[in-house]
Amino acid sequence: MITAERKPMEELIECLRPYHRILLVGCNECVTVCSAGGRKEVGILSSALQMAFMKEGKTLDVKEITLERQCDPEYVEELVTHIDQAEAVMSMACGCGVQEIAGRFKSKPVFPALNTTFMGASERQGVWVERCQGCGECVLALTGGICPIARCAKQLLNGPCGGSTNGKCEVDPDIDCAWQLIWDRLKALGLEDRYEDNIAAKDWRTGRGGGPRKIIREDLVK
């Protein structure tokens, strides 16, 4: 999923200072799962904002809506009936959702309520960890199913740097060394030999190196 965290209250209040009526839009997908921008968080932020405005002797009228998927134009369309009453929109989706609204409602200011962080997984209750950087040319088959790009602090493709210590990364003893994990996996699979294959320099064009990316599925395009 895409993970995100809510921005600090002060920053959000600052964005909304000039307005009296806003739409606060959550999303039912990833940000719901990571407890950052689902229906529940929309309710909490809405109350917090109204309270903060009240303290400053002002009022803020908040219309709360949580869409099924904010990155999908079909669902964003549901805002049409509410958009005119609002002076601005605050989105509690990931950056994709925020942009979808901005693209659809060209004359309405849209503010992100979240900092979108990474593509990751839930490690345990309340803890999310980065797992993939969307490089566009997955190498997990070579590395025992552990991503050296997202999980090694130096995105090394050919093995651990000289700082790997007791299974931990040199950057932070709380982070597992990706290459220790890869090595342990390769051993468990009896694929130690695979480590000896030199992995060639990556072609970053499939990643961010080629500029903004696009997928076109001819079979689906209407």
Partner: peptide
């Protein structure tokens, strides 16, 4: 190039040199 025989995992360090 550099080699660190003292980093972990130790059993990988010769293979790393080989690469």
């Amino acid at each position: 190039a550099a080699a660190n025989p003292f980093a972990d995992p130790f059993e990988l360090r010769v293979a790393r040199l080989a690469k």
